[in-house]
């Protein structure tokens, strides 16, 4: 029997993030008979705690405090590092999101623990050792890493690569004590929801429709939005589009943008430069719409449609609408 696997979860309102559910399911699979613990920090965590149980947590450590209503790295890292240092779980998993990444890095640094980041697969070998598979060189290579120390190991796990499966039922909820460091240097001033973000988050979306320079101008980007909307997907963009100021950087897919792994990726008017491909080539199914049959994007596309996007995209959107009804 080991010290179990911990998952530091994320959620909003009554719901855990999809990434958290995926990682809990993976923890359940890896843990065998060992305990899976989900650590939650925030306010009003009852519903999230129950959901954690459904996805495999035997126990939830919930730290509820009004000061955790707004994300604060220094305070969260302080609490999590203390708990991890105390209980010494065998493995701590954290979603590879903006918050999760820095939280994991702070905790690993404080306790000098090995941290494998952006992992796409985890395993436990016959030697009882955890191994992690992660990308390198913008995903052009995959590396399997092993931890050199015994004791607690850490990993951040990319959203949308592991399957979320409901297995258990609500586990026991234990309160995790709130405390904060003597000095807190950074404070959240505001958090606002952006107007044009689209309904679905890019890194967690199961369908992504991205637009490139082939759209000719920002006034035509609504074509991409409409297609994404009928599919219930998120909107992405190539760097050309971002550099030209048609879309903000948070939409960019690629080496210097987001890496996405949806079930379906549709590239509209995107040429398929290597720096774009490394951001989307692990999608389940890739569709390319481009009027140049020689475009590099067709080399990675499962289905290529050669044609003028200004005709193809509206027709496709219509066809999908029809097939919905």
């Amino acid at each position: 029997m080991g010290n179990g696997i911990w998952v530091v979860g994320e959620g909003k309102g009554d719901e855990l993030s999809r990434a958290t559910c995926e990682i809990l399911s993976e923890a359940r699979r890896l843990a065998g008979d060992d305990k899976v613990t989900c650590v939650l920090l925030g306010t009003g965590l009852t519903a999230q705690a129950a959901q954690a149980g459904k996805f495999g947590a035997d126990e939830v450590l919930a730290c509820e405090n009004a000061e955790l209503g707004k994300y604060n790295l220094e305070i969260e890292a302080h609490i999590v590092a203390k708990a991890v240092g105390d209980k010494k779980p065998d493995l701590v998993l954290v979603p590879a999101t903006t918050h999760g990444r820095e939280l994991a890095a702070f905790v690993a640094s404080r306790l000098n623990l090995g941290l494998a980041s952006e992992c796409v697969a985890l395993s436990k070998g016959d030697d009882g050792q955890f191994r992690a598979v992660r990308p390198m060189y913008a995903g052009k290579v995959r590396v399997t890493v092993k931890f050199t120390d015994s004791g607690t190991r850490m990993a951040t796990v990319r959203p949308n690569v592991l399957a979320a499966t409901e297995t258990g039922k609500a586990g026991a909820v234990t309160a995790l004590e709130f405390s904060k460091p003597e000095k807190v240097g950074a404070e959240m001033v505001t958090v606002e929801t952006k107007g044009d973000g689209g309904a679905v988050d890019l890194s967690e979306a199961s369908i992504v429709v991205s637009g490139g320079r082939g759209l000719k101008g920002p006034e035509n980007f609504h074509l991409v939005h409409s297609l994404a909307e009928v599919l219930g997907g998120a909107v992405g963009a190539s760097r050309m589009v971002v550099d030209a100021g048609w879309k903000e950087h948070s939409f960019q897919v690629g080496q210097t943008g987001r890496v996405v792994t949806p079930d379906l990726y549709i590239a509209v008017g995107i040429s398929g430069a290597i720096q774009h491909l490394v951001g989307m080539q692990n999608a389940g199914c890739i569709v390319a719409i481009n009027n140049n049959p020689e475009a590099a994007i067709f080399k990675v596309a499962d289905y290529g449609l050669v044609g003028d996007l200004f005709e193809v995209v509206p027709a496709l959107t219509e066809e999908l609408k029809k097939s919905r009804n």
Binding site: V143, T144, F147, I286, F298, D302, G304
Partner: peptide, 22 residues
């Protein structure tokens, strides 16, 4: 002494099967 991760092996990601034009 600070290094806690060790590379076991590098591999290329699985290649996508060739696609087709519709």
């Amino acid at each position: 002494g600070a290094v806690k991760l060790q590379v076991e092996k590098l591999e290329y990601p699985p290649q996508r099967p060739p696609g087709r034009l519709i």
